[in-house]
């Protein structure tokens, strides 16, 4: 499953890759906020403020299968 984070204002791609939270004990990127922190919470292109509310987060792939709990 992949995850994509885009700026809600200018649609700049901020993150693309493995779904955050899926690789267990993912220390480097524990949450989406960490990714926004890489950019100092400011979109490098439009200068807009990046918070979890101002970005679009989209995950792709099968959402549930029999081995997945919750």
């Amino acid at each position: 499953m992949t995850e994509k984070i885009n700026c809600g204002k200018c649609n700049m791609l901020l993150y693309f890759g493995e779904e955050i939270n899926r690789r267990l004990y993912m220390r480097a990127i524990p949450s989406e906020e960490t990714v926004l922190g890489f950019y100092n919470n400011t979109c490098p292109r439009c200068g807009g403020k990046l918070t979890l509310k101002t970005v679009n987060i989209a995950t792709e792939g099968r959402k549930k299968w029999h081995t997945t709990k919750s």
Partner: peptide, 16 residues
């Protein structure tokens, strides 16, 4: 084991 921070080979992302 599954879900352990001690992976089979050292992993920068998993283990402090």
């Amino acid at each position: 084991r599954y879900g352990s921070p001690l992976q089979g080979h050292a992993d920068r992302w998993c283990t402090q």
